[in-house]
């Protein structure tokens, strides 16, 4: 089995000048920020308790035969074993409760709704119009405006997945037959990597996506453009690629709006060229990786629904890749 995943997604992006963040310790969203503060407070508290236990255990072992001493009494057991945790935990509970109220308050302000559907092993993304109908569909990449809470409606088409962008906030499962929601607010611009967090089968490890937080102006411009049809092929190679794309039957699974390709099984490719990665965050996005993916998907991501089109000859493959890359 050959591996093409030589140039990992992250590295390519780093070369492109923007590093994706996938860390809860580098929060860029209000939810993640609050949880970060909570985590710091709890870590300090836990460390103190840990030190206390070690010191007491050490004393107990070193200065033994201290029957009658405080450390050897049932009163100490109750004081440190029951009363202390009860007090500390009550305080912690209050903190957690306040935090939860703050998070709840954010939910009510969300104006934009994005429907994310988990599929083995990629993410279908639909931006909803104000009336709740899908405005347009894309895949494996989510853009959101900085400073505005965005509501995510989470659904699943097959098995249970979990939607998680650590830098923005906590995770919520995508469960067949149910619709879960989570509200996220990005506080600064950047590219935040998200990943499926519920084991969902063979390629659970390669089910990532990018969340790109942009200024509201940039986001508005993107939103307007993304809803439009695909860019028409211009160069000779792009035109050939488009033809080959249709001839190879890609349109049975993939949609490219404005063309005959209207499949709904796989990711929408209308603006695939503008995305940072392909194959759900598996490869950086350029003509080379696109060609590799088309011809060798089963080696890159064994078990994925995308077949390996290894019967395509070199020039055809190349033209398809160039065409796809041109769909910005």
């Amino acid at each position: 089995m050959t591996r093409v995943r030589g140039l990992p997604a992250g590295l390519a992006l780093a070369l492109a000048g923007c590093t994706p963040i996938q860390s809860a310790l580098d929060p860029a969203g209000s939810n993640a920020g609050m949880v970060f503060d909570l985590g710091v407070a709890m870590t300090i508290g836990a460390t103190l308790v840990c030190v206390l236990v070690v010191v007491l255990a050490w004393r107990a072992v070193r200065r033994s035969r201290a029957e009658g001493a405080w450390l050897a009494s049932p009163r100490m057991v109750i004081a440190l074993g029951a009363v202390l945790p009860a007090v500390v935990l009550t305080a912690l509970l209050a903190y957690g409760f306040v935090l939860d109220r703050q998070l709840a308050a954010e939910e009510d302000r969300a104006a934009l709704t994005v429907r994310v559907t988990g599929e083995q092993w990629w993410w279908r993304v639909a931006y909803l119009a104000p009336d709740g109908s899908p405005a347009f569909e894309t895949a494996n990449e989510i853009r959101l405006p900085v400073g505005q809470p965005v509501r995510f409606e989470l659904e699943s088409a097959d098995v249970i997945h979990s939607f998680w962008v650590p830098a923005l906030g906590g995770k919520i499962d995508l469960i067949p037959g149910r619709t879960n929601t989570v509200t996220l607010l990005a506080e600064r611009e950047g590219i935040y990597r998200g990943q499926c967090a519920e084991f969902c089968g063979t390629q659970h490890a390669l089910m990532a996506f990018m969340a790109r937080a942009e200024t509201p102006e940039d986001f508005g411009a993107w939103f307007a453009a993304e809803g439009g049809d695909a860019r028409q092929p211009e160069t000779e190679e792009e035109v050939a690629g488009h033809g080959a794309f249709v001839a190879a039957g890609c349109g049975a699974c993939h949609a490219v709006r404005g063309t005959a390709a209207a499949g709904t099984i796989g990711p929408d490719l209308t603006h695939v060229g503008s995305r940072l990665t392909i194959a759900a965050g598996t490869l950086p996005n350029h003509a080379g990786t696109l060609a590799a993916w088309v011809t060798d998907a089963q080696a890159i991501k064994p078990g994925a629904r995308m077949p390996s089109f290894d019967e395509l000859d070199g020039p055809t493959l190349r033209s398809i890749a160039v065409y796809l890359a041109s769909l910005r």
């Binding site: 236990v53 255990a57 107990a60 033994s64 035969r65 201290a66 050897a72 009494s73 100490m76 440190l80």
Partner: peptide
């Protein structure tokens, strides 16, 4: 803490 207290007793 009962274990610690027992350690401290003997």
């Amino acid at each position: 803490f009962a274990w610690i207290a027992t350690f401290a007793s003997g």
